[in-house]
């Protein structure tokens, strides 16, 4: 993981708007600057546009207007071949987990390392340690269709963090787990954040948000900093 400077922005949105097709804008004039290494939460009611905003961050779609800068690069100017490289610096946990059904838990988590051409000998023990840490040490050989929702979520989280990303993006990461596991997973995110990872989490569960986090509220497509964790 690159150790970012505290004074640089990992993510910067300037007047960003998003609409699907010819419909109404679902995100309006979003201005946001997330410092490298910061811990950020986006809250808001269901349908407020949290998931759409995250999709813009992890380069899944382009904004209808405005400027998005990730790691100091204007994303509209990013060459196609640079996009996978930028994506590899991000860990993403989605609500539908996006697990590969024909690969075991171990292999799902190891996938980001495997596509980088790393040998299993170099990452095998790290993957197992991480899976033990998230409570899946006994499910290494299991396949996603046999896992519960909570287990799938933990596999997705382990896969997102195994590559030690510079930015971790999570959409309701504790939505399918009980409080104890939820708190444990959040501790993992906080630990990564302590090591320098910029964390951006969309959640409706205020109980999980620590006091030092920046909280943004998204409502009806508009965006505002609700609590400045450092202010």
């Amino acid at each position: 993981m690159n150790k970012p400077s505290q004074h640089t922005h990992s993510i910067h949105f300037d007047g960003v708007g998003l609409r699907y097709g010819r419909g109404e804008e679902i995100l309006k004039d979003i201005n946001m600057s997330l410092l490298a290494g910061s811990l950020n939460f986006i809250t808001g009611p269901s349908g407020a546009g949290k998931t759409s905003l995250l999709k813009l961050v992890y380069l899944h779609m382009r904004p209808s207007r405005g400027l998005i800068t990730i790691f100091g690069q204007d994303t509209s100017q990013l060459a196609a071949r640079a996009i996978p490289k930028t994506k590899r610096r991000m860990g993403v946990v989605l609500q539908d987990f996006q697990l590969v059904d024909h690969l075991s838990v171990f292999e799902n988590v190891a996938l980001p390392l495997r596509i980088r051409g790393l040998k299993r000998q170099t990452y095998g023990e790290d993957v197992i340690s991480l899976l033990q840490w998230v409570g899946l040490g006994k499910r290494l050989y299991a396949f996603p269709p046999t896992l519960s929702g909570g287990e799938k979520q933990r596999v997705a989280i382990a896969r997102a963090v195994i590559g030690k990303p510079d930015i971790l993006i999570a959409d309701e990461p504790t939505g399918n787990v009980d409080d104890a596991i939820g708190k444990r997973l959040m501790r993992l995110f906080f630990e990564l954040n302590r090591l320098g990872t910029t964390v951006l989490i969309a959640t409706h569960n205020h109980d999980l948000i620590p006091k030092n986090a920046d909280i943004y509220k998204l409502d009806n497509g508009t965006f505002a900093l609700e609590t400045d964790g450092h202010g």
Binding site: Y58, H60, A80, R81, P84, K85, T86, K87, R88, R89, M90, V92, Q98, L99, V100, L111, P112, I115, R159
Partner: peptide, 16 residues
């Protein structure tokens, strides 16, 4: 198709 999207999501190069 889903697998292809996952590979893309985790940053696999198109050539890979």
């Amino acid at each position: 198709r889903k697998f292809m999207s996952i590979l893309h999501q985790i940053g696999a190069n198109p050539n890979y």
